[in-house]
Amino acid sequence: MEHFRGRLKIDYHGSSGDANGRPILNASLASAILDLLAIAPTPQTIDEVWAAMKARLALDNRDQIIQLLKSLAQDHYLTSDPEKRYSFRFPLIRQWWVLAQGIRS
């Protein structure tokens, strides 16, 4: 399953500037989103993810998050319901992610 984590660095290459003009790697941002959703008790809206990410990183571009959520859904990490609330697509991968990243739910 390590494949799911390793793949982020390859598929989500590139970076974008944060509010202070410093680079943030897309792979790190994607991994932070997955961390958030892995332990979120309910599926999260785009705004909820955006708010949580802004609390961790100096982000000022909402589109960046929308784009990443879309890509993560296309790559089968996530799924979204009709109200555009995102959650892990497979519970097994979610459980593995919590263990592998060492995050507490």
């Binding site: 003009g21 609390a55 982000l59 000022d60």
Partner: peptide, 12 residues
């Protein structure tokens, strides 16, 4: 206070 504030990062 997680998720409580709407955070705005000010750019230089």
């Amino acid at each position: 206070f997680f998720g409580f504030f709407d955070i705005q990062h000010l750019t230089p």
